[in-house]
């Protein structure tokens, strides 16, 4: 379990580096897919199956389709992957930074911190995360209303921003 978690965490950092090192948007979106998938694995490893499912369905299913659509809008003839020198330089720079951070904290890791310690998991009927998310419909009703309001607001924002075509914008 510790090795799986270690691999997932390293994969997450590598995925964010591949997004941050300024490749073409196609490849950055691919890196983001990698981060989201690995993040699902990390959440599963900590026992959050419902949140992991939410991340997988909503994030990968909804968000990245939109980003693939928009990568087509911003297409360029000669895309830069991670093999280009400018991108490779920043990849190496970020890797050096992460290694510096790891060596700074080396030896300070908590004992057994690789796997979550969860003694109570067998005693509960409902998993902690799905029960907690269900609280949104009872105790967190105000927050639900605020979220609904911000979704309506975003709809109006997007429509207002993108409707300028007839006016020559």
């Amino acid at each position: 379990m510790a090795y799986i978690m270690l691999t997932l965490l390293i994969g997450m950092v590598l995925g964010v580096i591949s997004v941050a090192s300024n490749p073409s948007p196609y490849f950055a979106a691919l890196g983001l897919v990698l981060v989201a998938g690995v993040g699902c694995g990390v959440l599963m490893g900590h026992g959050g199956s419902f949140l992991s499912l939410v991340l997988f369905l909503i994030y990968l299913g909804g968000m990245l389709v939109v980003f693939a659509y928009c990568a087509a809008l911003a297409a360029e003839p000669y895309p830069e992957a991670w093999g280009e020198w400018s991108v490779l330089g920043s990849v190496l720079g970020y890797l050096l930074l992460v290694f510096g951070g790891v060596s700074w904290f080396w030896g300070g890791w908590y004992e057994g911190a690789w796997v979550p310690v969860d003694e109570l998991i067998e005693f509960s009927v409902v998993a902690a995360d799905s029960g907690g998310v269900a609280l949104m419909y009872s105790l967190g009703g105000g927050l639900l209303v605020v979220s609904a309001w911000v979704l309506l607001l975003t709809l109006l924002v997007v429509l207002e921003l993108t409707r300028g075509l007839a006016r020559g914008a």
Partner: peptide, 27 residues
């Protein structure tokens, strides 16, 4: 978290007001 939500709402709400004339500088 709630303070962050408030900041996000006010940022989102002013964006169409800023871009309301749709000329390149406003966008």
């Amino acid at each position: 978290l709630l303070a962050w939500m408030g900041l996000e709402i006010s940022t989102l709400a002013i964006i169409p007001l800023m871009a309301q004339h749709h000329h390149p500088r406003a966008v």
